[in-house]
Simulated scan of single mutants.
Amino acid sequence: MSPRKSPAPNFYAGVPLDRIDQRRADATFIDRLVSDPDCIIVPVWRNKHLIAAEAEAVWLRRRDAGHLVAVAREHMFLGLRSDVPYLAVDLSHLETPEDDPVLARQGAFQDLRAVGPVMNRCDSAILAYARGLVHWHARHGFCGVCGSPTVSEKAGHQRRCTNPACGAVHFPRTDPAVIMLVHDGGERCVLGRQPIWPPGMHSTLAGFVEPGESLEEAVAREILEEVNLPVAVEDVVYHSSQPWPFPSSIMLGFYARADFGPLDTAEDELESAAWYTRDQLRASPEDETFKLPRPDSIARRLVNDWLAEG
């Protein structure tokens, strides 16, 4: 039996905006929304967000920061929150955005991965959403079919090739990745470590889904590749998902039951991997000798829910 998931949503999920997809193609309507003086401007600079001292997202009103829309490389309508529109603006082409008098007195641009775990969950979800869109636009300025320039459409939620002979439409990309806690049905689970991670950090196994593969098959394949444990697809159980726009993934969380046995770690995948008991994880020193996954990750959620079952 697999562990039950707790009711709390994952970090960066639950964006509190009405995306009004059915109205995005109405340029006149969207322009009217984002021209509202109360429209919230969400600045993004080189994948960083404007954060105030106490890890609070800085929301700028158009009446105070409308010039940012004019200088932005791209701007994208995010949605409505209590009828207030939110608009992401990409300022990555600016060398020193802190020189702008409006931005300078509000806070500093920081990586969401550094402040997300301690931020308001709704605010961090909006910032993650904005970051994902900005990243996609920055990397799809040219058509992947014919190489011609593309233009933003549908309020920033698609791009179209400008070559009349092509006209291909491109949509924001999200790469599916499976992430799984392997357990033996009892007191033990598998955690691994990649050498590029912060000292001591261990996490669950994960990998991208390949073409022609179900999610359950991807879970079983990745476990076999990384630690050489056979897992039957019927022993793979879905837990939850998490948007992870660092830069463009959707993490699909699973539990997978495997028979306890020796691990043969793939050196090109992991630095190490081992079985750990619940007692060992509960006693984690959380230092450079051993620490659990970062608190805003679905990996940590999988571990926490598994621990809560024992």
Rank of each mutant, 00 (worst) to 15 (best):
F260T: 15
F208N: 14
V182L: 02
E234T: 14
M119E: 02
H183G: 08
S6L: 09
T162A: 14
F171N: 12
A55N: 12
V233S: 04
P295D: 03
A114Q: 11
E217T: 09
L302Q: 05
R46Q: 11
E288Q: 14
P247E: 09
W59F: 15
R24F: 02
D287N: 15
R131W: 10
C161R: 00
P97T: 05
D26Y: 03
E56M: 07
T174L: 12
S203F: 01
P3K: 01
L252Y: 00
V89Q: 03
V219Q: 04
Y129N: 14
V151S: 14
E54K: 15
A27M: 07
N120G: 12
Q158H: 13
R131H: 15
I196D: 10
R139I: 10
P243W: 00
R282Q: 08
G207S: 11
L17C: 13
L270W: 00
L87I: 07
T277A: 07
L33V: 01
D99A: 13
G310T: 10
H137F: 07
D83L: 08
R4F: 08
R32Q: 14
F11Q: 12
R278K: 12
A138Q: 14
K154L: 09
A220L: 07
E56G: 10
Y129A: 11
F208A: 15
F290K: 12
N10E: 11
A114I: 06
Q194R: 15
M180C: 12
Q22C: 14
L270S: 06
E210M: 14
V237L: 08
R294G: 09
H140W: 11
G107A: 07
A130V: 10
P7E: 03
